[in-house]
Design a binder for these strands. Structure first.
Length: 567
RNA sequence: GGCCCCGUGGCUCAGCUGGAUAGAGCAACGGUUUCCUAAACCGUAGGUCAUCAGUUCAAAUCUGAUCGGGGUCACCA
């Protein structure tokens, strides 16, 4: 970043020296661009804007500027068409970039823009007694990546798993368990059997609507603190959590809090009271609502006509609680895009309550995953179980290792890293908002633009470093002049800017795409240039290999993907 | 119907605050291993950037309309 800024400033100053009468520094800076191909140069200045005032052809202006400019700080300056193209001094730039990266180590790209502000992140949020599907994966891995990215730029992320652990479904579950379940069955396969009772309940309730009343009655008991209901709830919740934990362990993701919906049960009354006190609550069709027509939103339903609370009531309590606890700089909600309206309502209600911090609540939506074009639904059996996908991916990775690298040490561990890495990376590489239809073949692919491709590139880099049998010496030559290496060096210098962009856009895919691009140029580099040759550039080449490996590892780490040294 | 998102080669997608001949990956076809792991690299073929109009010296990118797909529109979360 520093280097990038310095270079841009240098170029702006150069241009300013000959254009001071026509354009100021900011204008020049905004016009500067990076050519599509580095054959055209490293930075370009388009001259179209001067054509009018000078009454000259842009091509001619470009040529004139090249003649007037001071060429000294650059390798060369050329006029190509209407552009003035600047070529950086490659040796110097390589030296500075590699020096910065290798001395900063894992801190390369760190910044303090967050000023240690708290950033609670609402993420993952699976429902108790239901299996985790591919749908939950998105929220989980996006939230985790954003936590890593925000930490890197100086914030204090707080990962909150807002479990779906309350609601009428628990009454239904209890009824289902009483009618068809057994302790032994549940111990054998907790989630599988709880889900079975739940599905069974819904089937039975179709024919016998009285079951629904029974379910509601048991939920009422639960709310009233009935000992049996409470005991069963705690039991189901604990079992589910243990199952979830296995998946989180496989993914390598940890949380700072598991405060789910149940946690806010006793925190809703104060919010409702406050709404009442501020005259925001009104009755409509028997329900209590906050009118939001002035915000062009549908009314927020705070209490049902039977007096029960709703999703937004709990979320209001949760948001307030999080603010009181953390005084957050931002509060992120990594929740599907189908809930966009809900978060608009949430913010609008908080705003009406006078909570200005509602501006810092940010919904980070993501696109829907479908299966055969249809929305995933646990009840309808249209599910893609996350556990199964991970199994499949790890199995495939094992097969790949057996075929390609049979002598690999710790093969099982690497298979896990590669298989899981492929699944996570696949979910993060595209724009958050893109919806996609689930395809196992696509998710567990290891070739082309995939996580394993990046991992492989890093493993190759590590392999070269091992074979070098010497350390990179930062006091020795670093001014790598090989043209094949140039794109890699420039991309390496881009990393800090990419981290900031990913944070600003709440978009982990920025990092994923960056890692792919860096891996690709690096692969191209070492396919065309031999690294391990004894000459005066060996140290510089090894420095590049090391720096690349380091940045690839950092990028993967930000995404929550592991990077094996060998694969 | 109102509001929101999306529409780029057979498939999946990049294209940053508008700029130089629209880029990748997969699939297809051909090539590269006595050479640092062929999970790689190189090449060939494939696109009127949904359509129309507007703004601009310049539009895949900005504006409006049309068509097509998805989401959402109070007592689920």
């Amino acid at each position: 970043m520093e280097d990038d800024m310095d270079i841009k400033t240098t170029i702006v100053n150069s241009l300013s020296a000959v254009l001071a009468d026509e354009l100021n520094n900011t204008e020049i800076k905004n016009l500067l661009e990076v050519p599509k191909s580095s054959k055209l140069g490293d930075y370009a200045f388009p001259t179209f804007i001067l054509a009018k005032s000078r009454h000259q052809a842009p091509q001619k202006i470009a040529q004139e500027l090249v003649e007037q400019l001071d060429h000294e700080p650059y390798e060369k300056i050329e006029a190509t068409g209407a552009y003035v193209n600047f070529f950086l001094n490659k040796g110097n730039f390589a030296e500075a970039t590699l020096q910065t990266i290798l001395t900063s180590g894992d801190q390369y790209g760190d910044s303090q823009v967050g000023q240690a502000g708290n950033v609670p992140i609402d993420m993952s949020s699976p429902n108790i007694a239901k299996p985790m599907s591919m749908g939950h994966l998105r929220s989980t891995v996006i939230g985790n990546a954003l936590a890593n990215i925000y930490k890197k730029i100086g914030y204090q992320p707080i990962k909150i798993n807002y479990l779906g652990d309350w609601g009428t479904q628990f009454g239904k579950l209890i009824v289902g368990y009483h009618k068809w379940g057994s302790e032994a069955e549940i111990k054998e396969d907790p989630i599988g059997n709880l889900l079975k009772y739940y599905v069974h309940f819904h089937e039975a309730a179709e024919k016998d609507p009285e079951l629904d009343d029974e379910g509601r009655a048991w939920f009422k008991k639960l709310e009233d603190g009935d000992p049996e209901a409470t005991h069963l709830w705690e039991w189901f919740r604990g079992l589910s959590l243990a199952e979830f934990q296995k998946i989180y362990d496989r993914l390598g993701i940890e949380f700072d809090s598991f405060n789910g919906e149940a946690y806010y049960n006793d925190k809703m009354d104060p919010v409702v009271d406050e709404l009442k006190a501020k005259n925001l609550l009104q009755e409509s069709r028997g329900a209590q609502i906050v009118d939001l027509t002035d915000e062009n939103l549908t009314p927020a339903l705070i209490k049902r006509s039977d007096g029960a609370t709703l999703y937004i009531t709990r979320d209001l309590a949760a948001a307030t609680d999080r603010y009181n606890k953390f005084h957050f700089a931002k509060s992120l909600y990594v929740v599907g895009s189908e809930q966009t309206e809900h978060f608009k309502q949430l913010k609008a209600v908080l705003k009406k309550m006078g909570d200005d911090w509602s501006d810092d609540i940010i919904h980070v939506p993501f696109g829907l995953i479908t299966k055969d074009g249809k929305k995933l639904s646990t009840r309808k059996g249209n599910v893609v179980l996350l556990d199964k996908v991970l199994d499949e991916a790890v199995d495939l990775a094992k097969q790949q290792i057996a075929a390609k690298n049979p002598d690999l040490a710790h093969a099982d561990q690497v298979a896990h890293q590669v298989g899981v890495g492929a699944v996570i990376f696949h979910d993060l590489k595209n724009d958050r908002l893109d919806s996609f239809d689930f395809s196992l073949g696509e998710v567990v692919r290891f070739e082309g633009e995939t996580g394993p491709y990046v991992q492989y590139s890093n493993a190759r880099a590590q392999s070269i470093l091992r074979k070098a049998k010497r350390e990179v010496n930062l006091d020795d030559v670093l001014n790598l002049a090989d043209p094949n290496a140039w794109d890699t060096i420039k991309y390496l210098a881009d990393f800090p800017a990419m981290v900031l962009r990913a944070a600003n856009e709440y978009e982990p895919s920025v990092i994923a795409k960056y890692a792919l691009r860096l891996a690709k140029t690096f692969n191209k580099y070492y396919a065309n240039s031999k690294i391990l040759v004894e000459d005066d550039q060996l140290n510089a080449r090894l420095a590049l290999v090391k720096a690349t490996s380091q940045v690839l590892q950092q990028s993967l780490a930000l995404l929550g993907v592991q990077a094996p040294d060998e694969m």
